[in-house]
Amino acid sequence: MRINLNMLWAGLLPVMFLTGCGENKEEEKKDEESVSTLGAVSAMKEMAAQAEEMQKSGPVATVDFRSLKELLPADADGLARKEASGEKNGAAGFTISTANGKYANADDSETIELSIVDGGGSAMMMGLAAWSMMEVDKETENGYEKTSKIGDNKSYEKYDNSNKEGEVDLLVNKRFVVTAKGRGISMDKIKAALEDVDLDKLAGLK
């Protein structure tokens, strides 16, 4: 079967960004460039394999965004929910359902944004969760960036100590991407907010 190369490149761009994020080009060593190149090539092969598998299984209807919205917690690790929204968009044969929640303390000095996205297990997921096909592990004086696992789910996280800003992304059941972004709070609090989402229930949605 033919692979949509435009979709593959759309998914590869964030991967290439991840492999080069935070690096000074003038100081980049040749061996590091080789590692980045190999990582990008490996990701491209993985995307092609996944695209082939997705084409074999056929399209899957995305979950109604209202069902995703119901999974947004009333509070995120103690921060009250200020806003909740959802929408469903489609283009070029692909549909995405999204639910978003915004949480904050009284003076907005601590904020968290939670989002749940369903790409229907389509090739679109390669762009939404390109990091799930990479192995990233970086650390600087100001923070870190890495891919890992939370439970059985592949995850990507990054944190900036100087600004106290961070993000955790989680790929659930190979089709849902759950993201928690925090400002003015610790990474532990961001992860705790992510745990407030019922991931088991999310994985069972169809």
Results as ranks from 00 to 15, higher is better:
172 V>L: 03
148 S>P: 00
159 Y>L: 11
141 E>Y: 04
171 L>F: 05
149 K>M: 12
157 E>D: 10
144 Y>K: 05
143 G>L: 05
183 R>S: 09
144 Y>G: 09
142 N>Y: 01
162 S>L: 13
177 V>R: 12
158 K>Y: 10
145 E>Q: 15
183 R>F: 03
181 K>I: 10
153 N>D: 09
141 E>H: 06
148 S>C: 00
143 G>P: 02
171 L>Q: 06
164 K>H: 13
169 D>F: 03
178 V>Q: 01
170 L>H: 06
148 S>T: 11
173 N>P: 04
166 G>L: 11
172 V>I: 13
172 V>K: 00
178 V>Y: 02
175 R>Q: 02
147 T>I: 06
148 S>Q: 06
146 K>C: 04
174 K>W: 03
174 K>N: 14
159 Y>M: 12
148 S>Y: 00
147 T>R: 06
150 I>H: 06
172 V>C: 05
180 A>G: 02
179 T>C: 01
143 G>V: 08
142 N>D: 13
162 S>K: 15
141 E>Q: 13
144 Y>F: 14
161 N>Q: 13
147 T>A: 07
142 N>C: 05
172 V>G: 05
162 S>H: 08
156 Y>H: 11
178 V>D: 04
141 E>I: 10
166 G>K: 12
152 D>N: 15
142 N>Q: 10
153 N>C: 09
156 Y>L: 11
178 V>W: 02
146 K>S: 08
169 D>Q: 13
176 F>R: 02
155 S>K: 02
151 G>R: 03
161 N>Y: 07
145 E>R: 12
167 E>F: 01
141 E>R: 12
164 K>I: 11
174 K>I: 07
158 K>N: 14
176 F>T: 11
162 S>V: 14
177 V>K: 14
163 N>Y: 12
174 K>M: 08
161 N>T: 13
161 N>M: 12
167 E>H: 03
157 E>V: 09
145 E>A: 12
166 G>R: 08
182 G>D: 04
175 R>H: 05
153 N>I: 04
163 N>G: 15
173 N>D: 12
178 V>G: 02
173 N>L: 02
163 N>R: 15
180 A>K: 04
178 V>H: 01
156 Y>E: 03
144 Y>D: 03
183 R>T: 09
176 F>E: 07
155 S>C: 13
175 R>T: 00
171 L>G: 00
172 V>N: 04
150 I>K: 10
147 T>F: 00
147 T>L: 06
172 V>R: 07
175 R>Y: 03
168 V>I: 15
183 R>W: 01
